[in-house]
Design a protein around this nucleic acid. Structure first.
Length: 440
RNA sequence: CGGGGCGUAGCGCAGUCUGGUAGCGCGACUGGUUUGGGACCAGUAGGUCGCAGGUUCGAAUCCUGCCGCCCCGACCA
């Protein structure tokens, strides 16, 4: 992408209303724009990051055996009356009437609808286990939206729903998501820690929150230091093996880990002090097993094979990709701006033309830009007529992992300078070597 | 919903107390000089001062009502 022809409205100063660092940086880097309290438009580079996160989430869901579909944002109130949640959900649910005065709502979650879809087609235990998910916008009319994307009212959520014939099966489904989540956050460059959680209004009795540590996190968390060094399951983990998954989950739940809501100071105190971690954390995922809470009232039943039918055991599993955009920034930034993990960076490489208008410099930039682009690398070519300093500042602000600085001074010796945003290290090398390095 | 704060140019702010021609910086635009860490000079454009009503010869400024946004708390991916 040529910056001169792109849409990247960066700013030196952030709007006053933005206080936390991710919110400020997202606004300054031209990733998004506020359109109302807790409601944001994604601008081009914000959307790029969101899509990359979404894709990693999708790949790991698929790997675990979950199947993607897409449900609508608008739902009928009748479904929610069946489960009893239409009245129970309260003011957080945005209620709408259509032109025929029918009660509708903008979905805050999709247990009812997925259960309705499930029961319409699935009749037999032979079709289980089944895990269906979608990645769709949700609306929760929070009393107090805040912190930009961290707690918006409209947000993107990956929500998966598992269906099993019995509790043992449901536990396995739960474990699949548990492992998929560990892998997902790892791929996003984050170290996540599963913590026992209350199951809240969704209901149920087995639940974990996945927390990442960040000094600006919303809640206080406590855990054993071991979690910082645990190795995440590899891509070839056998999701069909109950024993294998159970042992992974057992390992990841063996040590103390709790958010302040569930914190037990006495138990925590028994951990040797040098192994105690007390930090701030951000919730980036939440998984629940809730049994027959919805299948019972909504009559989602399957034949057992022994001549009867039973309500299915369900679980639901959420990740907020839009929140993750902010959470990743909270975890990775410095005074100059964002430091994206490569997996989610809007561009992998920025080519900076340090002397716009100089024929040789321009030609060298063009060659690099075209060469890298042809190899499928996301390149942002800063061909604007701003000064070199402004180009550095822009590249740093938007957090591109690699900056290639091309100017007459280096070219005189046949070299360009490659800088890592993460380490700040710079290295002089030939354009060909740079292209090589960045294509790896 | 309780408590606090803020709405003046795209962004950051001053001006409001004490009513009298709406300003500054950044950004944008034009021309020129520049170009290795947010360049310089000269010039230009850009405003229903959140909205409505009131007081007044005169309101960004005083009064009343409303709207929007942010922060702290209870709730949450």
């Amino acid at each position: 992408m040529r910056l001169s022809r792109y849409f990247l409205p960066i700013a030196k100063e952030a709007p006053r209303e933005a206080e936390i660092v991710s919110h400020r940086l997202m606004l300054r880097a031209g990733m998004m724009r506020q359109e109302g309290a807790g409601i944001y438009a994604f601008l081009p580079i914000g959307l790029r990051v969101l899509k990359k996160i979404e894709q990693i989430v999708r790949e790991e869901q698929n790997r675990s055996g979950a199947i993607e579909l897409l449900m609508p944002t608008l739902q009928s109130a009748d479904l929610w009356r069946e489960s009893g949640r239409y009245d129970a959900y309260g003011k957080e649910m945005l209620r709408i009437k259509d032109r025929h005065e029918r009660d509708m709502l903008y979905g805050p979650t999709n247990e009812e609808m997925i259960t309705e879809i499930f029961r319409a087609y699935v009749r037999s235990y032979k079709d289980l286990p089944l895990n269906l998910y979608h990645i769709q916008w949700k609306f929760r009319d929070e009393v107090r939206p805040r912190f930009g994307l961290m707690r918006g009212r409209e947000f993107l959520m990956k929500d998966a729903y598992s269906f099993d014939v019995d509790q043992a099966g449901a536990q396995h489904s739960y474990n699949k998501m548990f492992v998929a989540y560990l892998r997902t956050f790892e791929r996003l460059g984050l170290k996540s820690i599963p913590m026992r959680a209350e199951s809240g209004p969704i209901g149920g009795n087995l639940s974990h929150e996945f927390i990442i540590l960040a000094s600006t996190g919303e809640s206080q968390v406590f855990c054993h230091r071991d979690y910082l060094n645990m190795v995440v399951p590899p891509a070839d983990v056998n999701f069909d093996s109950r024993d294998e998954l159970q042992s992974i989950v057992d390992k990841w739940t063996s040590q103390y880990a709790a958010t302040e809501d569930m914190h037990d100071a006495e138990t925590f105190a028994k951990i040797s002090p040098d192994q105690q971690v007390s930090a701030r954390g951000i919730e980036v995922g939440h998984i629940f097993y809730f049994g027959t809470k919805y299948s019972l009232p909504m009559k989602a039943v399957v034949a057992t094979g022994q001549g009867g039918e039973v309500p299915v055991h369900m679980g639901s599993y959420g990740i907020g990709p839009s929140r993750l955009v902010a959470a990743i920034i909270e975890a990775f930034h410095d005074d100059a701006g964002i430091i994206w993990p490569e997996a989610v960076a809007p561009f992998k490489v920025a080519v900076l033309n340090l002397k716009q208008g100089d024929a040789a410099t321009g030609a060298a930039c063009e060659e690099l830009y075209r060469g890298l682009s042809a190899k499928g690398i996301d390149v942002l070519y800063d061909d604007t007529d701003k000064g070199a300093g402004a180009k550095f500042a822009t590249a740093d602000l938007i957090g591109v992992p690699w900056q290639v600085m091309v100017g007459p001074r280096g070219l005189a010796e046949g070299k360009v300078e490659v800088k890592s945003r993460k380490t700040g290290e710079k290295e002089l090398m030939s354009p060909a070597a740079a292209a090589d390095l960045l294509t790896r």
